[in-house]
Design a protein around this nucleic acid. Structure first.
Lengths: 196, 196
DNA sequence: CTTCATTGACTGACCAGTCAATCAAGATAA
DNA sequence: TTATCTTGATTGACTGGTCAGTCAATGAAG
């Protein structure tokens, strides 16, 4: 029973189905048919709305990125000091919904995809650049400029590395633990309490 | 002109061709045919020696891991202090040959593959566990036990994260820079010079 | 004449993307 | 109100292409 205005909902459903399907197969070897079936529609409809497989996947990636950006932005708005802004970014990176195995799987697959697909690569650059500049911005008032750049690279690498390990590890990823690891790095670098 | 004892050589050639082919296509969507052609043999021969595509890819992964392990082991043998052992691991992780774009591409693809292929997953576990225990071992005499565990996870995540960024970044990866980033983390955590 | 290296040719399966057709809900006109 | 038109939703069926894996055959060296 087709009704008007289905497009928004169907796109949403297909994107969510894509995440689930990617997680289940564990790779980009998902077929459009699998994703569509999971969303309860035909594969032709997926093509109708997204044009092609790549576009569907890139849209899924864009969705995850916007979830990430949303979390960070919300926390950033409430942060009252540079140091708090830094923590906002770190905590926003490890919210429970993002540490969900399915989301992790999708991220990892996207990393791999960014090597081959131009669209995915462009999107990944946006993510990287935005994270880096947000970090440098927050760090600018805390440390010297060269250190800010180094730390931004370190924090970003640490976040990506933790994502990777969450995606591949058997243990269920733990928000607090991940945050603590990155915060530990920050504290050590900006001169927090030394632990030996 | 078929001669005896070709197996070893052919396997080697196929593994190297696999790395190159993966880099070129930027994904696991390489066909056995592409790899075989690059190695100058037929795809049937690749199947003959490796059984199936998965086995070929897993063998390639194993090759990269043994290169990595070799570098670390060699450096470790010459290290005379716990701190030097730590540096040995870090430096062994970022040798020029491993930072080659083709090798980076392959690593990244393997990370993604480890989600789906049981063989790849098992191998990845070996890599992770070995790195972790080597790190904890080196750290044991430098910091408290809980800190050693945390630092080991941090260093490992940092290394993986840097690999990821090298694989996806446009800048050519730089050994010295990568080493400096990880060493900076170590120094900050074990109480080296503070930078502000 | 055995054993290993090697391949061309084949197959069975799968999949992205296309297309023409169907269906229903709202808009418009009579 | 009813009849008709329009437009978006939706799909089944099809196609062209691709690829992993198989197999029987060929060739050379020992």
């Amino acid at each position: 029973m087709p009704r008007r205005g289905m497009e928004r909902q169907r796109r949403q459903e297909l994107v969510e189905a894509a995440i689930a399907a990617i997680h289940e197969t564990g790779s980009l070897d998902v077929t459009v048919g699998q994703i569509a079936r999971r969303a309860g529609v035909s594969s032709a409809l997926a093509h109708h709305y997204f044009g092609g497989k790549d576009d569907l996947i890139v849209a899924t990636m864009r969705h995850l990125m916007s979830v990430f950006a949303g979390h960070v932005r919300r926390r950033l708005r409430q942060a009252r000091s540079p140091r708090a802004r830094l923590s906002a970014i770190i905590q926003g990176s490890f919210t429970a919904d993002q540490l969900q195995p399915a989301a992790m799987s999708a991220w990892l697959v996207f990393y791999a995809m960014a090597q081959a697909s131009p669209g995915a690569r462009r999107l990944h650059h946006v993510y990287t650049a935005r994270l880096h500049s947000t970090l440098v911005d927050a760090l600018a008032e805390l440390v010297s400029r060269p250190t800010a750049y180094e730390m931004a690279r370190g924090i970003a690498a640490l976040i990506d590395g933790i994502y990777l390990r969450c995606a591949l590890g058997d243990e269920t990823p733990d928000t607090a633990e991940a945050v603590a690891l990155v915060e530990g790095y920050v504290e050590a670098m900006i001169g927090g309490p030394r632990r030996v």
